[in-house]
């Protein structure tokens, strides 16, 4: 909605008008937030979510433009359409926030997460874990005679599925990066 004009990027292609604002259906949205890389900026964003009772399902942050001191925060959140709009507007009014993109409604996007999974197993289970890793295009980044550390990249669902398969085979530890996401195309 042009009149709403939440910070640039977030609303010009927003499907806000198309979605029922009164809907009580909880949706999952991936937001990309471009911020000044200054001290405390992550605390500001996280504090906003906790202070106003919003959900964070996943959050990643890293500097993406060293010269411009810009960081990109990718946050996956859940809420009704009106809550999602409110989250975007609240993020947009933080002083160090430059842009808020709702990748879920702005158009097609790609999402990737990296997972490291340690599987402790021997015998058939060890062989089976390696076979499944191949199917999932996970690679082995560390190995002992009793363990593997697999590296897997993909959507969160894919990593969930891989972890579920590894669990009965001896999954010992998981580390995940959270989601990084970009819109498709050159817009």
């Amino acid at each position: 909605m042009s009149a709403l004009n939440i910070k640039k990027g977030s609303s010009s292609h927003s499907a806000y008008d198309l979605r029922d604002p009164h809907s009580q259906v909880v949706e999952t949205h991936t937001l990309a937030v471009l911020v000044d890389n200054e001290a405390g900026v992550l605390a500001r964003v996280i504090g906003l979510f906790s202070g106003r009772g919003y959900n964070i399902e996943s959050l990643t942050v890293a500097e993406v433009d060293h010269k411009g001191h810009r960081s990109r925060i990718t946050v996956v959140t859940r809420g009704t359409p009106s809550v999602i709009e409110q989250i975007k507007a609240q993020l947009g009014r933080l002083v160090p926030v430059h842009e808020v993109h709702d990748l879920t409604v702005d158009g097609p996007s790609v999402e990737r997460e990296l997972g490291l999974l340690k599987v402790v197993a021997s015998g058939d289970k060890r062989i089976e874990s390696l076979r499944l890793a191949e199917i999932f295009r996970a690679s082995v980044v560390d190995s002992t005679l009793e363990s593997f550390v697999f590296e897997i990249t993909g959507t969160p669902d894919k990593i969930d599925a891989f972890a579920d398969l590894m669990r009965p085979l001896g999954l010992a530890e998981v580390a995940r990066t959270g989601v990084a996401a970009l819109s498709r195309g050159f817009a």
Binding site: A3, L4, P21, Q86, A89, G92, R93
Partner: peptide
């Protein structure tokens, strides 16, 4: 003047930021 005030509590028909 604050976009976050709009539709926060009461959905409106004509928002003007």
């Amino acid at each position: 003047i604050d976009p976050s005030s709009i539709n926060k509590v009461i959905p409106v028909d004509i928002p003007i930021v």
